[in-house]
Simulated assay, not measured.
Amino acid sequence: MSDAISFEDHWARTHQFDPPAIFDSLREERPLAKMVYPDEHVGWLTTSHELARKVLSDPRFSHNMETCHFPTTHWGELTPNSPEIPGMFIYMDPPNQTRYRRLLTGEFTGRRASQMTSRVEVMADEQIKAMREHGGTADLVEDFAEPLALRVVCEVVGLPYEERDRFAHAPKIMHNPESKPDEVGPAYEQALTYFFELIERKRQQPEDDILSRLVSDGQLTDEEICNMVALLLFAGYGTTGPALAVSAFALLHHEDQLAELRADPTKLDGAVEELLRYITINQYEIFRTALEDVELNGETVKKGDTVTVSLPAANRDPAKFGCPADLDIDRDTSGHMSFGYGVHQCLGQNLARVALRVGLAALLREFPDLRLAVAFDEVPLSLKGSVFGLKSLPVSW
């Protein structure tokens, strides 16, 4: 216990874009370190790229919610363990996880995502127009990043964007660490009620979207479909919007990188990958629990021990990336872990890349003099949630 860090230590950012400084010392001295979890379980934390890949690719580690110890609190309270939720495959192990995920794999291929590009460009242009209606200033989070991310997810999944008041508030409340516990349950139930109604509508009038195909396929119950839709919405909208906003914030702060990208827009693909590595918005909730004793980095991770994998630390490992604390849009980012690794690697990563690439391209094209409307250190951050984001991003042009 004496050498175990607290779970709160890996929240302690000292800079807008940098993970907690403790990661560097841990990675150098003990990349597999003991950590005291909120429920007082003494588990582990990994901070190296190599160990992150090992844990996330090892079938001896489980992501089932029944036996894990959560590395964070939600709304100041312990997260209770729970049995598998039908359709919520992110918290399942193979073969159950595989059965659900296989139904969606074809929906998120690189080819499918590329085919969405022109449609996302239209959405981005419409959001740019909405920004201009504010005059010469806007909130890039509220007026661009969040609505664009939501529109993309809605289009692919089959959720009517014009009915977003029935469901869009739920992921925002659940991802917001400042939400009150009594707000979360009702918001989630309201969204689920709407999803059940929408499933019946799709059954009567199917369209060209994921939800319609899941309904028509007939392999799943309405409950399974409903939870899969919730997962796609919460995971897609809850991460892509913050990633787009923080990426824009990072470029506006690193003026040399922004200037280089403006001078050569062909570097945008590489810039997106570097921004994903650099900001690593998925902060805390990548964890696995040992199904048996596992020898790892000279330590015995005992059966039942939970290992938290820090993706921000892995993406700043100097053994993998030279000068990892620098934003460098020309670097080789292959192997970055912003979308995770192994069987639970982000299913929608190709679509997320399209949204980021198109969104940033639109901002660079339409606002050649885009700049922060407040001082850099006055941009309000969201640091306590599972996703690193911004509460707002005031910009002007």
Rank of each mutant, 00 (worst) to 15 (best):
T240R: 00
H344G: 11
K303Y: 07
R262G: 04
R288P: 02
V246C: 01
E285P: 01
K320L: 01
L276K: 03
L252M: 05
D269E: 09
G304L: 08
M337W: 08
E274K: 00
T333F: 03
A263Q: 12
A313G: 08
A245Y: 01
A355M: 13
F339R: 09
T266P: 05
V307T: 08
L251P: 03
V246R: 01
Q345F: 11
D305W: 10
A319K: 15
A271N: 01
R331Q: 03
P318D: 12
E255D: 13
K303N: 11
A290N: 09
A250D: 04
H336D: 00
K303V: 13
N282S: 13
I286D: 05
C323N: 15
T300Q: 14
L291K: 15
E299D: 14
C346P: 10
D317K: 02
K320Y: 00
L327H: 10
T306S: 12
V272Y: 01
E295D: 14
F287L: 04
T280I: 10
E255G: 09
L327K: 06
A263T: 02
E285F: 13
D293Y: 06
T306M: 05
P318R: 08
N297R: 08
D326S: 13
R316D: 00
D293A: 07
L244V: 01
V294L: 04
E292L: 05
K303G: 05
D332P: 04
V354D: 03
R316I: 01
L258R: 05
V309I: 13
N297H: 13
Q283T: 12
L276C: 07
T289L: 12
N297E: 15
C323V: 13
R288M: 04
F321V: 11
L296T: 07
L347I: 07
E295W: 07
D326K: 13
V301E: 04
H253E: 09
L311D: 09
V307Y: 06
K302Q: 14
L351Y: 10
E255N: 12
V272L: 02
L258D: 00
E255M: 10
I286T: 14
K320R: 15
A290T: 09
R288I: 04
